[in-house]
């Protein structure tokens, strides 16, 4: 989800950011076509604010630790329509990616500061401090840790006054498909919290679609 450009960077740490759950490995709730909805807290010291957010998984390639999809921000004050962005995700699988981001202006300290906000991360803390967790076996862990980086605006121009410079630290729960995340951009409010739940289009149950590229 895009955020306002040049937000004041006063620390406004979100307290109790511990409802995050996430998952990993082939998980049907994180497969293509699955949709999620919730909010992103974009509060600043001046104003409490949260934007409604919808996410849809469009592509998934576990072999390469790759995931992608769109994120739609619904009540963005400066936009007339919902703002849709396309994002690509890195799955922390110890094979393709570790807990250390190594780019996007995130230092290992930034990484650890964000990952520790997810309670399900705590068993890995000690090892991650050593090597970013590259020796960990995360394949059977019921949470999947990811980084989501928005790549482009799908339906608005780049001159919309919004930025997608940062990225999300994301934790997905394989049990119920809930997602929590924290947006990281050194130039935006820290720890903007993303909270999403699996949606079911008004069904009493779960539905799964699929495609297969050739």
């Amino acid at each position: 989800m895009p955020v306002r450009e040049l937000e004041s960077s006063t620390l406004s740490q979100v307290s109790g950011a511990n409802s995050g759950q996430s998952t990993f490995q082939a998980c049907t709730l994180l497969s293509v076509g699955q949709a999620f909805s919730g909010t992103q807290n974009v509060s600043s010291p001046q104003k409490d604010e949260a934007w409604r957010v919808n996410v849809r998984i469009q592509g998934c390639d576990l072999e390469h630790g790759y995931l992608c999809g769109t994120m739609e921000a619904l009540n963005v004050p400066m936009a007339d329509t919902p703002v849709v962005t396309f994002w690509e995700g890195e799955i922390v699988d110890s094979k393709n990616y570790t807990f250390f981001t190594g780019k996007w202006e995130a230092t290992p300290e930034d990484d650890i500061r964000h990952w520790t906000k997810f309670p399900s991360f705590s068993p890995f803390m000690a090892q991650v401090e050593v090597d970013g967790g590259k020796s960990l076996d995360l394949s059977n862990y019921p949470f999947i840790f990811m980084r989501w980086k928005e790549q482009y605006f799908v339906n608005v121009g780049t001159d919309c006054g919004l930025t997608i410079a940062g990225f999300y630290y994301v934790c997905f729960s394989c049990s119920d498909g809930s997602i929590s995340g924290f947006y990281y951009d050194p130039n935006s409010s820290p720890f903007q919290k993303l909270e999403l739940k699996s949606t079911n289009d008004g069904r009493s149950g779960f539905s799964f679609s699929s495609y297969e590229l050739q």
Binding site: Q58, G59, C68, T70, F86, E88, Q151, Y152, V154, L213
Partner: peptide, 13 residues
């Protein structure tokens, strides 16, 4: 064409 369109990033765009 099949090979180059095997890309969600570009299909999505």
């Amino acid at each position: 064409l099949r090979s180059v369109s095997h890309s969600i990033k570009n299909l999505s765009a």
